[in-house]
Simulated assay, not measured.
Amino acid sequence: MPPKSPPSTGTDARLLTEAVTRLRRALRTSIRTDYPWEQLPVAQVELLQALADHSPVRIGDLAARQRLATSTVSGLVGQMMTAGLVARAVDPADRRASAVTLTDTGRAQLTAWAEAHERRLGAALDALPPADRTALRAALPALLRIAELLGDDDQD
């Protein structure tokens, strides 16, 4: 019997899309089941992550960085300000404009969110056979390169 040929790029892309989608859904569901305090929408978590890396930042710049409409980011920032996760202040680079910063509460919430996900993923990784853990570890650099090719690297 001849060796199987490797799957086509289209098949790889389809399988990777399915894996990423299912992984995100499983993480989102499991975190809310295991940690009922976690009610932070993913869009707000992504804004908190961006602010942790780039703060202070204007709403328009934050919207461009996240590839969202300015009005969408403005609404999310308003919700996050009400929750005490972010603050708006005068932009130090242009006193006529305002910039958003991450508050201590926002940083603590983001840290708790990340730690909870790391615990969930750590438990799942520990349940895998050693060969699967090794395969995942070997695939991580390629997955990070895919993220860069898809435009994640311009967010730094």
Rank of each mutant, 00 (worst) to 15 (best):
L40F: 05
P41W: 09
P41H: 05
V42E: 15
Q44P: 01
Q44E: 12
V45G: 00
V45A: 02
V45P: 00
V45S: 00
L47M: 14
L48M: 09
L51A: 12
L51D: 14
L51W: 11
A52S: 11
A52V: 01
A52Y: 04
D53N: 15
H54Y: 09
H54I: 13
S55I: 08
P56M: 08
V57M: 14
V57A: 14
V57G: 06
G60S: 12
G60T: 11
G60C: 09
D61I: 01
D61C: 03
L62S: 15
A64F: 05
A64Y: 04
R65W: 01
R65G: 07
R67Y: 06
A69F: 00
A69Q: 09
A69H: 11
T72E: 13
T72R: 12
V73I: 15
V73G: 13
G75S: 08
G75W: 02
V77N: 13
V77E: 11
G78Y: 12
Q79T: 04
Q79H: 09
M80L: 07
M81P: 06
T82L: 08
A83P: 00
A83I: 04
G84T: 05
G84I: 04
V86S: 05
A87L: 01
R88G: 13
A89R: 15
V90I: 08
P92Q: 03
D94M: 09
D94K: 11
R95W: 00
R95Q: 00
R96M: 07
A97P: 05
A97V: 11
S98R: 15
V100T: 13
V100K: 03
D104I: 04
D104F: 07
D104S: 12
D104Q: 13
T105R: 04
T105F: 03
G106T: 06
G106R: 03
G106M: 08
R107T: 09
R107I: 05
A108E: 15
Q109N: 09
L110V: 06
A112D: 02
W113V: 03
W113A: 01
W113G: 00
W113N: 02
E115I: 08
E115D: 06
E115A: 10
A116N: 04
A116W: 01
